[in-house]
Simulated scan of single mutants.
Amino acid sequence: MTDVLDIAVRHRLGDFTLVSSFTSDGRLTALFGSSGSGKTSLVNVIGGLIRPDSGHVRVDGETLVDTERGIFLPKHRRRIGYVFQEARLFPHLTVRQNLLFGHWFVPRPQRRPAELDKVLELLGIGHLLHRRPGALSGGEKQRVAIGRALLAQPRLLLMDEPLAALDEARKAEILPHIERLRDEVGIPIVYVSHALAEVARLATTVAVIENGRVAACGPTADILSRPDLAARPGAPEASSLLTAEVAGFDEAFGLARLTTPAGPLTIARGTLLQGQRIKIRILASDVMLSLDRLSEISALNVLSGSVAEIGERSGLGGSTVHLRVACGEAKLAARLTAKSVALLGLQPGKPVHAVIKSVSVEMP
């Protein structure tokens, strides 16, 4: 299978040097890292806004940049859609006119007349066609910006922190539309973010960017739970990302029973429906380990497994250890004190029980 993205570039920007190399065949590849790590610079190389000093960029098998062969495809010929932090709509045009502006970038014989209707339905913006940008909310503006990019019929969509300027309510409004875009449209997406919750919910592949370099790249669930990455200074806490299906309910106590690759879990019901498929996330600090299967405890979830991996000691004075525990078909991240690891005699292969409170299970 051809990788959707194949990138290996080097570029100096003042005192900062971007040296990044990775491949991805994911539907939504997140470039994740702190501010100033080089995420936007890498996106600008992909989009043709920066000409790298050396290296190559290939999208879906087509070479956009290859410095050894003297190839540098201009940005207007790359067929790449770009969505920025700000919507950047034309204030004097209506929503319909802003959307159709994307069609100008598509050769007339290749324009698909029905495409506008599909985009309107996908993003839920049909009722906004006659408004101007000044009358739209932040979330509505971003959905129109995404629609405009889609109507240019791109081979790749670049989204540079598209939710960074929105409040939590507007983010919640737009996230389901990005999920539909990922799952239904078939256009690969590169999504820049420093928000772990967004990455956990949206990404199929994560590339971790640190100081201009790709520190790791792989499936989202694997990257988020890796002990070596979690132990780095300033890194976000490790977590387990699981797919789950709602198997039933405990009506008397407002709980939902889930089937997951790690085993059965019970969580607060909320608005969940029978048979619904969801993602759940469990922080490493919310997983306790026991050598015996505990009873008469408040936590409703106890999963049997074995220690799969133990990371190096980290934190102040080497007080913390990150682990992964194999439970069923999944590996759960756990964060313990070094003393707890020593007292339990934990080592790879040792049987343990993972204890998880229902209220600790999140839906990103």
Rank of each mutant, 00 (worst) to 15 (best):
E168A: 15
A165V: 13
A215Q: 13
E210G: 00
A230N: 01
G138A: 08
C217H: 00
R170K: 11
E140Q: 15
L224H: 05
P188D: 09
E237V: 13
I209K: 06
L158G: 07
A235P: 03
E161H: 06
E198V: 04
V199T: 13
I174R: 01
A215I: 01
T205F: 10
L181E: 06
Y191E: 07
D183M: 02
I146C: 08
R213H: 14
N211A: 15
A135V: 01
G234P: 11
G218E: 04
A200F: 01
R226Q: 14
A169E: 14
E210R: 15
L181V: 04
V185H: 07
Q153A: 15
R182Y: 10
E237S: 14
E161N: 07
I174P: 01
D183R: 15
K141Y: 07
S137F: 10
I189L: 14
A221T: 03
L158A: 11
Q142E: 08
V206A: 08
D228K: 00
G218K: 06
L163A: 05
A238W: 00
G186Q: 10
Y191A: 01
A203F: 10
G186F: 13
L181A: 01
A172I: 06
R180N: 06
E198K: 03
R201Y: 11
A172P: 00
S239M: 15
G138P: 05
Y191D: 06
T204R: 02
R182L: 09
A135F: 04
A235E: 07
D222R: 14
E198I: 06
A230T: 08
A221S: 14
D160K: 08
V206E: 04
K171V: 11
P188Y: 11
R148I: 07
R226E: 14
D160W: 11
P188A: 13
I189D: 07
S225V: 02
E210S: 09
E184L: 14
A195D: 15
E210T: 11
A238C: 06
E210Q: 13
P227Y: 09
R232G: 03
Q142I: 09
R232M: 14
I146F: 08
K141V: 02
R232S: 00
L156Y: 05
G212I: 09
G147K: 05
E168G: 00
P236R: 07
D222H: 13
I178K: 02
P233T: 13
P154D: 08
R155M: 09
R213G: 05
L202Q: 05
L136G: 08
E168I: 05
T204M: 09
P162A: 03
D167K: 12
K141E: 12
D222C: 00
E179N: 01
I178P: 10
P233A: 14
E173M: 02
R232A: 12
M159K: 01
L150Q: 09
A149C: 11
I223E: 02
R170S: 15
V190N: 06
A169C: 00
G234C: 04
A235K: 03
P162Q: 09
A238I: 02
P227D: 09
P188N: 11
R155K: 15
L136A: 03
L196G: 04
A195M: 10
N211R: 15
Q153R: 15
L136C: 02
A152T: 05
A221D: 15
S225A: 15
A231Q: 05
